[in-house]
Simulated scan of single mutants.
Amino acid sequence: MMTQGASVHASAVLVGDRAVLIRGPSGAGKSRLAFDLILAGRAGQLPPAVLVGDDRVHLDTVDGQLWVRPARELAGLIEIRGLGIRRCDVVIEAIVGLVVDLAAGDAARLPPPEALSTRLNGVLLPRIPVGSGYDPLPMIAAALTTTASSGSVQPLDDCSKGIGNHISPNIATD
């Protein structure tokens, strides 16, 4: 049985069999991202996605896994900017599989490996730091539907075309 855990200012959506925990300051877009994930699940762009909680959730660690549950008074409610508080389907608990930090100060185009994980309640989890002004949905979709490249693929420091963002010398050579 799960015990009442720490209440945190965050949203969470169950995508497939793992929850995406969305953190960030007020106004950063946590509710918007939660709803975008639900819509992407409905559209088949991601596995089916269901709200766990919006604005405030409870976290518990059980057997080395981080569980998330909605705050009881907010269960099944989500804020949709311009429409207000709306009801939607909800799951009462899920295992967290990914943490997304909106308006993250350490967001980078090619983040160092240490920025791509975080420890919450003693559990090491994959993390996506998203900078202010960037759409987090494509990054999350990529994280959930692709795998990391092998260590042998490295971006080039300089490119023969002078652009500097090519993965291999074979790309964009005339």
Rank of each mutant, 00 (worst) to 15 (best):
K161T: 12
G24F: 10
D36C: 07
D101I: 13
S152M: 06
V13L: 01
C88Y: 02
R72V: 09
L77R: 12
G76E: 14
A142T: 13
L156S: 14
L39K: 03
R127P: 10
L59W: 13
R32Y: 03
A108D: 10
A142M: 13
G16R: 06
D63Y: 07
V57F: 03
I167K: 01
S160R: 14
D60N: 11
I85R: 10
A49H: 13
D60I: 00
P155C: 06
G16S: 07
Q154M: 13
V123P: 02
I163K: 12
L51F: 09
A143P: 02
P70G: 10
G29L: 05
D54N: 02
T145D: 03
H166V: 00
L59R: 08
G53W: 12
A148D: 14
R32M: 06
G151Y: 02
T145S: 15
R86S: 13
P113L: 13
S149T: 03
S160Q: 14
S152E: 04
A104F: 04
G105V: 12
P113W: 02
G164T: 11
V57M: 01
S7Q: 09
Q4S: 09
A19C: 12
P126G: 10
N165F: 11
V62I: 15
V96A: 06
R86P: 00
V57E: 08
V15W: 00
G29P: 03
I171C: 06
A6T: 15
S117T: 11
F35N: 05
A172V: 05
Q45N: 08
R56D: 07
T3F: 12
V99L: 01
V50D: 01
A107Q: 08
V13N: 01
V130C: 12
V62H: 15
D157L: 11
D55E: 14
A34H: 09
N121C: 14
A141Y: 00
G133R: 12
D158H: 13
I163P: 02
T146L: 14
V20L: 05
R87L: 03
P47R: 04
G5L: 06
V13Q: 02
G133S: 03
A94R: 05
L46S: 06
S168M: 13
L144N: 06
S132E: 12
D89H: 08
H58A: 13
G29I: 08
A148E: 15
V8R: 02
R56T: 11
P136C: 02
L59I: 09
G105I: 04
L120P: 03
P70I: 06
K161H: 14
M139A: 10
S149Y: 10
Q65K: 15
T173K: 14
G162P: 03
A19S: 15
L120I: 15
L137Q: 07
G16D: 08
C159N: 05
A34W: 06
